[in-house]
Write a protein that binds this DNA or RNA. Structure first.
Length: 861
RNA sequence: GCCGGGAUGGCGGAAUUGGUAGACGCGCAGGACUUAAAAUCCUGUGACCUCACCAGUCGUGUGGGUUCGAGUCCCACUCUCGGCACCA
């Protein structure tokens, strides 16, 4: 089979399959729907790379297998065209994003058609098209109406290079996920999604999802549910005059008898109060100086760098004291930047004996260290950082807690503090609300309108007649109404708010969104009072586009396509997604956001499911020359040239053979050639099988074939494609090593097993064995045939080998019938006659014989 | 620092419940066919010892342990790859 023959055959079948509609699922009446979803790509300017193809192929093999098992498989594809990544690239090469998106889509889809996946090309989704983002905007509005989308002033991550804010999740080691530049912290008013309202459910559902533990653990850590207590400490001056109180959150309240200081974040609200109270001007100016110093340095110095540099802790004493209600101790209050304002209450109570950070701080300010937990043996004073004991143990120096375990003491002290009114139990999460707005151009405009006139009157959507107060998920309606003064969603009938074609789409240094420079875009009328109003000019995060695309696919092309984001009836049939395949790098971001959106839509009554993905499978990464493929390393492999040279069948097989699908593998050209040779061998053998035209298959080959049917089916199910392919190679070796006695019918069975991996060549060969060179309708395709079954009785060999061990070491083996293999007396008798065994047995007595039926016999001397 | 993977020939990787370690492929070596080469096919290929494809010794990151028997189970450690990170 020459290279051009491969090209011709692959193209022929790709066109034929599409013509006969082989891969179009019956969306409205499928009896056994199977939604086989692949994470849709975010195409880069270079187009499809071999890592994408690896991901898609693994998903496609599974889909084809499920189809052969009789499911109505729906396997859609699309792309995410919006986002900073594309926009930055456009700025660099001086092309408009709208034009770039069209070019990318064309190229990308052309490449995708060549990989031989069973995509339903009648149902693609592209996020940047108005007919899609119309519904993205609708979704935003639904969240807003229920109080799940809100505006707030917060300290946010600002990327000076991308000139936009980023969500916490998009900041990696204090740097921008996209451009790698350092992140600054800025206080800005931004749009947020109240994902924290779902934190508990997002956490609780995890245990019942059929996802890999690895991904579930990553999500659990990110949600970071922790139970603790807010303890209120009275604050007094040196002279003992009470001036206020500070609330500290802690997860280790049982250690509170060992608390010796309090530290608050530099931007803690209590500071303004302190400054008023403190009479000593020197101290006030010291505090002010410290705070402004922290602000300056944090622009250039991320927290992460400070940890890495192991910088000494800093802080400033306020000359005020918190009173520990348990011990009565006067604990000095400090302002320190090691306390983060966004965490807990922004104030911590320092227990230097049992927290390393607290110990470091205590050392700098020479504060006392008290041991209140022992490991059961060691009760010595804590003098160095290595002595700090953070584990569970036995309480000491803690009054009524002494002698209790830390776990028991925790329950006891929480009850005590609550009953005395000193504190209140609280659950906290690491998860924060999702920062959704971006000061950029290339995204869906946030569909909101701000009316100054209404704002002045204290009016908003929430005070209007249209508001449905009962459906608000966020409990505190008053807070919502007062913080959203003047804001109204765009009327559904006015959607989409189209993104205009702007020549000056580049972001400004000032954080002013490009749309804000175009009055023709933002000038509008207030939907409530009809006076002049302005549109929101920020756009939404790309992650919002991809947080609901899977809901859209089945409804594409339906009669209600334009009217609704997704058709309820169709969605009912196809959800949840049966199998979701994608990269582990999306374990936290995309999967968490998608789950949140699904839950919210469920609660609004739009969806019956409240989890989108029943199964999620994380595939591995393709590496090249021992390194992750990346543009900067220059080791990115483009699949096009390999498809041209070897065909997509050989490339698919090779990619899946590199290693377990869950682990990824190392791409090497020489091994690729080996796979190409094997594909050629299969071709040649099949041609010979047809020429020979045997009617009966040799018994040995038949047994091997039935074992193969079992093996390949099981391996595909557990995504061990590499071993499935190895087993098929083994079978082909058996075929070549002996006279080719296999019937055409049985050869077709083999081709069916290979078909999910190499769809084109198996189709061509299958049709040739059927004496056809073309198919008239989809039912004739090899991919429409039922998956082969195996006969149990053919799986057992006529002879089995039994291992003979002496003292656990293999010395020999014998071949017996399966029946005799179960009979210890026969096996023992035969084994003892073996010369190699006799050599060890003759001078010693056998103490014990271990017999494992059909496996081994072990003589212990 | 915390959480989660992983470590097997020259290389990628196999190995249900502990039961013949190294399947399958790459590479390498030798051979057949050929004027020659390519392609194809056949044979061999963990290390050591050995005249030997007899027999034997060692061998799954390191050190211990459990067991008739450990790549697999337990304890301690080293290295490595991901994720999170002054989270109170």
């Amino acid at each position: 089979m020459k290279t051009n023959t491969i090209q011709v055959i692959e193209k022929k079948w790709q066109e034929t399959w599409e013509r006969v509609g082989l891969y179009m699922a019956d969306i409205t009446s499928a009896k056994k729907p199977f939604y086989n979803l692949m994470m849709f790509p975010y195409p880069s300017a270079e187009g499809l790379h071999v890592g994408n193809m690896y991901a898609f192929t693994g998903s496609d093999i599974y889909g084809r297998f499920k189809r052969a098992q009789g499911y109505d498989v729906f396997e859609p594809i699309g792309l995410d065209g919006f986002g900073i990544h594309s926009e930055n690239y456009c700025i660099k090469i001086g092309r408009h994003p709208m034009e770039h998106a069209r070019i990318t889509e064309k190229n990308f889809y052309a490449q995708l058609r060549k990989i031989g996946a069973m995509y339903d090309w009648s149902k693609t989704v592209e996020t940047y098209k108005p007919k899609y983002y119309k519904h993205t905007q609708w979704l935003f509005i639904q969240l807003f109406k229920r109080g799940l989308a809100y505006r707030a002033n917060a300290e946010v991550n600002w990327c000076p290079s991308c000139k936009t804010v980023l969500a916490d999740e998009q900041v990696i080691d204090g740097a921008c996920e996209r451009c790698g530049g350092f992140i600054e912290k800025k206080a800005l008013t931004q749009w947020f999604f109240r994902i924290t309202a779902y934190a508990d459910r997002l956490d609780a559902h995890l245990s019942s999802l059929y996802w890999s533990d690895k991904v579930k653990i990553a999500q659990k850590n990110w949600i970071g549910k922790k139970e603790g207590i807010d303890i209120v400490y009275d604050v007094v001056t040196e002279e003992g005059e009470k001036v206020g109180f500070i609330t500290c959150f802690t997860t280790r309240p049982e250690t509170n008898f060992g608390a010796t200081f309090i530290a608050i974040a530099p931007n803690h609200e209590f500071i303004t109060q302190i400054i008023r109270v403190i009479k000593n001007k020197k101290i006030v100016s010291a505090i002010k100086k410290y705070i402004s110093g922290v602000k300056d340095s944090s622009i250039y110095e991320t927290l992460i760098n400070r940890i890495k540099m192991k910088k000494e802790k800093t802080g400033v004493f306020t000359c005020l004291y918190g009173i520990n209600p348990l011990s009565g101790r006067k604990m000095p209050v400090y302002v320190s930047d090691f306390v983060l304002s966004g965490v807990g209450t922004g104030a911590v109570v320092g227990v230097p004996g049992h927290d390393r950070r607290d110990f470091e701080f205590a050392q700098v300010f020479e504060l006392p260290v008290i041991r209140v937990v022992s490991d059961g043996v060691n009760r010595d004073d804590i003098l160095t950082k290595d002595d700090v004991y953070e584990d569970a143990g036995i309480m000491m120096n803690s009054s009524f807690l002494d002698g209790m375990t830390t776990d028991a003491a925790k329950i006891r002290i929480i009850n005590y503090l609550e009953s005395q009114g000193f504190g209140k139990k609280r659950v906290v999460y690491h998860l924060r609300d999702w920062l959704i707005s971006r000061q950029r151009y290339w995204g869906p405009p946030i569909p909101m309108i701000y009316c100054r006139s209404c704002a002045e009157k204290g009016k908003s959507y929430f005070t209007s007649k249209k508001s449905y107060k009962d459906e608000i998920f966020f409990k505190d309606f008053d807070i919502l109404a007062s913080s959203m003064k003047g804001w109204y969603p765009v009327e559904d009938s006015d959607l989409p708010v189209e993104l205009p074609y702007l020549e000056d789409f580049q972001p400004g240094n000032d954080g002013v969104p490009p749309l804000k420079k175009h009055a023709s875009f933002y000038q509008t009328i207030c939907p409530e009072c009809q006076s002049e109003a302005i549109r929101e000019t920020e756009v939404s995060d790309t992650f919002l586009d991809s947080a609901w695309y899977f809901l859209r696919y089945p409804s594409v092309g339906s009669s209600r396509e334009h009217e609704v984001a997704f058709d309820p009836e169709i969605t009912q049939r196809w959800f949840p997604v049966s199998m979701y395949t994608g990269g582990a790098e999306h374990s936290v971001l995309h999967l968490m956001y998608s789950r949140f959106i699904t839950m919210a839509l469920h609660d609004m009554g739009y969806l019956s499911v409240d989890e989108p993905f029943a199964n999620f499978f994380a595939h591995g990464l393709v590496i090249k020359d021992g390194a992750k493929m990346s543009k900067s390393k220059g080791n990115v492999v483009n699949p096009d040239e390999y498809i041209t040279l070897y065909g997509s069948d050989a490339l698919r097989l090779y990619l899946m053979f590199m290693g377990p699908y869950s682990e990824g593998g190392d791409f090497r050209d020489s091994a690729m050639e080996g796979m190409s040779r094997w594909v050629q061998r299969v071709w040649n053998i099949t041609i010979r099988v047809k020429e020979n035209n045997y009617s009966v298959t040799d018994n040995q080959i038949l047994r091997a074939l039935h074992r193969l049917v079992k093996k390949v089916g099981e391996d595909i199910e557990r995504r061990r494609y590499n071993t499935a392919i190895a087993a098929m190679m083994d079978f082909v070796n058996i075929l070549t090593n002996r006279e080719l006695k296999i019937s055409i019918q049985d050869m077709c069975v083999f081709l069916q097993l290979l078909a999910p991996f190499a769809p084109h060549m198996t189709e061509e060969l299958y049709q040739r064995l059927q004496d056809r060179d073309m198919i008239m309708d989809s039912s004739q395709s090899i991919h429409a045939q039922q998956w082969p079954t195996y006969r149990e009785e053919l799986l057992v060999d006529s002879l089995i080998s039994i291992v003979i061990q002496v003292n656990g070491k293999v010395r020999d083996s014998i071949t017996v019938s399966p029946e005799n293999g179960n009979n210890q007396a026969i096996v023992e008798e035969q084994a003892k006659r073996r010369e190699k065994v006799l050599r060890y047995l003759k001078d010693a007595s056998v103490r014990k014989i271990v017999f494992v039926p059909r496996k081994l016999i072990n003589f212990v001397l």
